[in-house]
Design a protein around this nucleic acid. Structure first.
Length: 268
DNA sequence: CTGAAGTGC
DNA sequence: GCACTTCAG
C-alpha cells in the first residue's frame, strides 16, 4: 500500500467515525425529545397534541388520546393523517377491546350493546387502513363515543370523508376530534358512558407552506346541510371544551388562526 | 364508507 | 366468545 492510498483509507475511516458518531447522537437526541413530547417540530404527531383537562393522556401507535374517566370516553383523540396513510385495503372488523393503556379503566364495549347508539370511532378505522395493526388499534373502547347511527353514518361520515380528501389534497392534515363533554348528557350502560350533545373536529394543515386550520362543531343529529355551515373558530371549541389546541405554534399565528372561522382556504 | 344484530357452536 | 350471515343509511 503506498502512502497516498494509506492516507485515503485513514481519511475514509475518520469520516465514517464522525458520521457514525453524529448518527448516534441524533438517535439519542430524537429518543429524548420524542419522549418529552411537543418540542420536536418534525414530529408533528407530538407537536400538535392539545392540552388535557383530565390529566390522562394515552399514546397508541396510530393516535393519542386524553381520557375522561367521568364520561368514560376520550375528550380528544389526535392523530396525523398523512397522504401515505390513505389506503383502500379492506380489513375485517375486529371486536372492540377495552383499552388497557387507560389506567383508570376504559369503558367496556357492553355499555353500548342494545343502547340504541353506535360505537362511533373518533379516529376512524378508515383513516388507519395502512396496516392491519393500525386498523385494529382503532377498535379500542378509548377511541369510541356513543353516536346516533343516522349521525354517524350521515354527516359525521361525510366530514370524515372530507378529511381524507383534504389529507390527500394538502399532503396530510393533523386531526383532533371528540365529543363535547359538557352540560347535561344522557348516559348509557352500567358505567354511564356520556352521550355528547355535540361533536367537534379540528384540523390543521402545516404541510403546504402556509399554516391553516379549520374547526367544525356539529349537533349530535344528522343533517343535510352542507358541512361548511358547521364551521366555527378554534377559539369557540376551546371555550366550549376547555382544551387548548396548537399551543406550540407561534403565539401571533396561533391567535390569528384560532380566532378565525373562515373556510375559504379549504376546498369543499 | 359508517355501523348493528341474529344464529350456531 | 367467536365466526358467519344479514341488514340499514
Amino acid at each position: 500500500m503506498n502512502k497516498r492510498t494509506l492516507y485515503s483509507v485513514i481519511a475514509a475511516l475518520i469520516l465514517l467515525g464522525v458520521y457514525s458518531y453524529e448518527y448516534f447522537l441524533n438517535e439519542e437526541k430524537q429518543a429524548e425529545i420524542v419522549k418529552d413530547g411537543k418540542h420536536v417540530k418534525n414530529n408533528t404527531n407530538e407537536y400538535f397534541l392539545p392540552t388535557s383537562t383530565t390529566g390522562q393522556i394515552v399514546h397508541h401507535e396510530g393516535y393519542s388520546l386524553s381520557y375522561s374517566e367521568s364520561h368514560e370516553q376520550a375528550e380528544w383523540v389526535a392523530y396525523e393523517l398523512k397522504k401515505s396513510h390513505l389506503s383502500n385495503a379492506n380489513f375485517k372488523r375486529p371486536y372492540f377491546e377495552i383499552d388497557k393503556a387507560v389506567k383508570t379503566g376504559a369503558a367496556d364495549w357492553r355499555n353500548y350493546k342494545k343502547s340504541g347508539y353506535d360505537r362511533g370511532h373518533l379516529c376512524p378505522a378508515g383513516d388507519r387502513r395502512y396496516s392491519q395493526f393500525a386498523h385494529d388499534e382503532t377498535f379500542l373502547t378509548s377511541n369510541i363515543s356513543p353516536q346516533d347511527h343516522q349521525f354517524n353514518a350521515g354527516i359525521w361520515n361525510s366530514l370524515e370523508q372530507k378529511t381524507r380528501y383534504w389529507a390527500s389534497k394538502y399532503d396530510g392534515v393533523f386531526v383532533v376530534t371528540g365529543g363535547v363533554l359538557k352540560g347535561n348528557m344522557k348516559t348509557i350502560g352500567d358505567e354511564h358512558v356520556s352521550v355528547p350533545n355535540q361533536f367537534y373536529k379540528v384540523l390543521i394543515d402545516n404541510n403546504t407552506g402556509k399554516t391553516k386550520m379549520i374547526a367544525f362543531l356539529l349537533p349530535h343529529k344528522d343533517s343535510n346541510k352542507p358541512l361548511y355551515e358547521f364551521v366555527v373558530s378554534v377559539d369557540t371549541i376551546e371555550k366550549l371544551t376547555g382544551i387548548d389546541f396548537f399551543s406550540e405554534l407561534d403565539d401571533a399565528i396561533e391567535n390569528e388562526l384560532e380566532a378565525s372561522s373562515r373556510y375559504k382556504d379549504w376546498s369543499f
